[in-house]
Every structure is written in C-alpha cells, then in structure tokens.
Amino acid sequence: MKETVESILATPNSSQKNVMIVDDNNYYRSMRYEYHQLAAKFNTGYLQIYMDTRLELPCESWENSLTIDSADLNNPSMMSKIWVRIQEAISNPVSTIKRLEEKKLVAEQSKLCNNHNVVHNIDKALRKQISQYIREHKEKNSARVLAAQLNDIRQSVMEDAKRGIIVPPADILKADESIDMPKLETWVTTIFLQRCSSQHGHDLVILE
C-alpha cells in the first residue's frame, strides 16, 4: 500500500488536485506516520479520519485527525465537514507546516538565548534604571535632555561590557545557567551610579 501511494505521489499532475484515500488498518500511530512522512516528502496535505476504537488514539499534532463516530455517519452535513478538512489539508502541505514549526522553534530558541545572554540583560537593566531616574527627576529637568545624557551612559556601559572591560560577578549565573536578575540589576545599578557620578561637573542634570 505504501509503495503504491508513493508511486502515485511521485508522478506529478499539475493540471488538477487529487485526493488519495488510503483505506488501510494502520492500527498504530507509527504506521500512520509513514504516510505523514510521504506527504512531507512530496509537499502535499495529510488528513486522518479516525472511526474505530481498535486503532491507537490519535494524539500527536501532526496527525491532523478528524474523529467520526457512528452517529456522525447519519449526519447529512458530515461529508461537507470532511470536504472542508480535506481542502484545508490541500492548502496546508505537511512540508509547509513543518517549515513554520521549525521557524517557530528557532525563534523560541533565539528568545531563550537572548534571555540567557548577560549583555542583553545588562541593557534591559540599564534601560530600567534610566526610566526610573527620569520619573524621579523629570519635574526638575528636561526629560528629553535627561534621557539623552542617561542614554550616553548606557551606551558607554554596554560598549565596555561587550569589550570585556567590565565583567559582571560570576555568581549572577545560576546552576541551571539562567541569570539571577536581582543580582545582575544590583551590579548594573552600582556601575550606572558610578558612571553618573563621574559626570558630575559635566552638566549631568540629574545630579544635585
């Protein structure tokens, strides 16, 4: 059966779209997965219609399963429902879905990497400090001028962090390699205040 299906899929027909119904036992998920892989290989859609309790219950997202019980068989709208699902499968080939899932996974991994990136979190902590100082001093000073001065300090700290001129304490990394943000923010606050103090006498408007 599988060889026959693969042979048909390997013969492209650009003039029309066809629906291939595989009427086989496929009791186990692993058996059904072989056809899912064929759908991915030949960039076509995949849909399961689950009707028998003897089959291994579909539970994986890739199975794209439509469950039908005996009562549904007497429902005149069931064929329309099945056809809608078939059209959705045709419009969303397995390979396309896989690429989207892979992109999502890469994005999630990239986000996780950024969250664990010390320099990235230093920048977040600095921006938090800047927002706090502007809120505390905006009534006495121009918020725009103040933000520009503080941003210069932020950039100088970031540049030194990237070049390794300043190095955060080693204990900001937890055993699971995640970042202890309270410790990092405490360290960043100290560095930030030191840089602010060094600007005293150079028209840093937040210092009184």
Results as ranks from 00 to 15, higher is better:
Met1Ala: 13
Lys2Trp: 06
Glu3Arg: 08
Glu3Ile: 05
Thr4Asp: 07
Val5Cys: 08
Leu9Cys: 01
Ala10Cys: 06
Thr11Arg: 11
Ser14Trp: 08
Ser15Phe: 07
Met20Gly: 01
Ile21Leu: 10
Asp24Cys: 07
Asn25Ile: 08
Asn26Gln: 11
Asn26Cys: 09
Tyr27Leu: 12
Tyr27Ile: 10
Arg29Leu: 09
Arg29His: 00
Ser30Asp: 09
Met31Gln: 15
Arg32His: 07
Glu34Asp: 13
Tyr35Gly: 02
Gln37Thr: 04
Ala39Val: 05
Phe42Pro: 08
Phe42Asp: 02
Phe42Trp: 13
Phe42Cys: 06
Thr44Arg: 02
Leu47Pro: 05
Leu47Met: 11
Gln48Arg: 12
Tyr50Leu: 01
Asp52Leu: 11
Arg54Trp: 09
Arg54Ile: 08
Glu56Asp: 14
Glu56Gly: 06
Leu57Phe: 11
Pro58Glu: 01
Cys59Met: 06
Cys59Ile: 07
Ser61Asp: 14
Glu63Met: 09
Glu63Lys: 04
Asn64Asp: 09
Ile68Leu: 13
Asp69Ile: 08
Ala71Lys: 14
Asn74Trp: 04
Asn74Ser: 14
Asn74Phe: 12
Asn75Tyr: 04
Pro76Tyr: 01
Pro76Ser: 06
Ser77Ile: 12
Ser77Phe: 09
Met79Trp: 02
Met79Ser: 06
Ile82Gly: 03
Trp83Asp: 02
Ile86Cys: 08
Ile86Met: 09
Glu88Trp: 04
Glu88Phe: 09
Thr96Arg: 10
Thr96His: 11
Ile97Thr: 12
Lys98Glu: 15
Lys98Pro: 00
Lys98Gly: 00
Arg99Val: 15
Leu100Val: 07
Glu101Ile: 07
Lys104Thr: 14
Leu105Glu: 15
Ala107Phe: 05
Ala107Val: 03
Glu108Gly: 00
Ser110Lys: 13
Leu112Tyr: 11
Asn115Arg: 13
Val119Asp: 10
Lys124Leu: 12
Lys124His: 08
Ala125Trp: 05
Arg127Glu: 12
Lys128Phe: 11
Lys128Tyr: 10
Lys128Arg: 14
Gln129Lys: 13
Ile130Gln: 04
Gln132Phe: 11
Tyr133Gly: 01
Tyr133Leu: 12
Glu136Asp: 15
Lys138Arg: 15
Glu139Tyr: 10
Glu139His: 12
Asn141Trp: 04
Ser142Asn: 14
Ser142Met: 01
Leu146Lys: 02
Ala147Leu: 11
Ala148Gln: 13
Leu150Cys: 04
Asp152Met: 10
Ile153Asn: 04
Ile153Phe: 06
Arg154Gln: 12
Ser156Lys: 10
Ser156Leu: 04
Met158Ala: 01
Glu159Cys: 06
Gly164Leu: 04
Ile166Pro: 01
Val167Asn: 09
Pro168Arg: 05
Ala170Thr: 12
Asp171Met: 05
Ile172Pro: 01
Leu173Glu: 03
Lys174Phe: 05
Lys174Val: 04
Glu185His: 08
Leu193Asp: 08
Gln194Glu: 15
Arg195Val: 00
Arg195Ser: 07
Ser197Val: 09
Ser198Glu: 15
Ser198Ala: 15
His200Ile: 14
His202Gln: 12
Val205Glu: 05
Ile206Ser: 11
Glu208Pro: 15
